[in-house]
Amino acid sequence: MALLRLFGDDDFVSRMEQMQREMNRLWSAAWSSSPMGSGVFPAMNIYDDGESFIARAELPGIKSEDIDISVAGKTLTISGNRTIEPVGESETYHRRERKSGEFRRAFDLPDLVDANKVMAHFSNGVLEVVLPRAEQAKMRKIKINTK
């Protein structure tokens, strides 16, 4: 009976999906303490479009001049500072959920990148760093010659 009720719930699928995402989240949280990443902020996603790795991080309210990005070998380092203007004397806080402070994050990419061609841009509070693979790291298609 309980089972029937469970599956009769319209929300069941969406709850399952939510649970699944929660599991994924916990899983990646466990990963971030692995040697692959040092430091904790910002959370980063890495994409691969075949040519380049693309690192993205959500950094709302941070000015681009307050972010430092460097690449050495396979390691991408992002550091910076988020400042939130304190309220004036005549103002009071009702809620204070947004955080400020310094951050530094080093990340090892799966392959060598061409440090001279790394591009970064910042739009709507999301940092995107495009890191083209180094020539020697690019996969080459080998043509098979037929006689």
Partner: peptide, 22 residues
Amino acid sequence: PEVDITESDDAITLYADLPGVR
């Protein structure tokens, strides 16, 4: 979204972090 809400004599101000939102 994470928000800060402040109040002054004239207004209430809400700041919301909405990364990636145009």
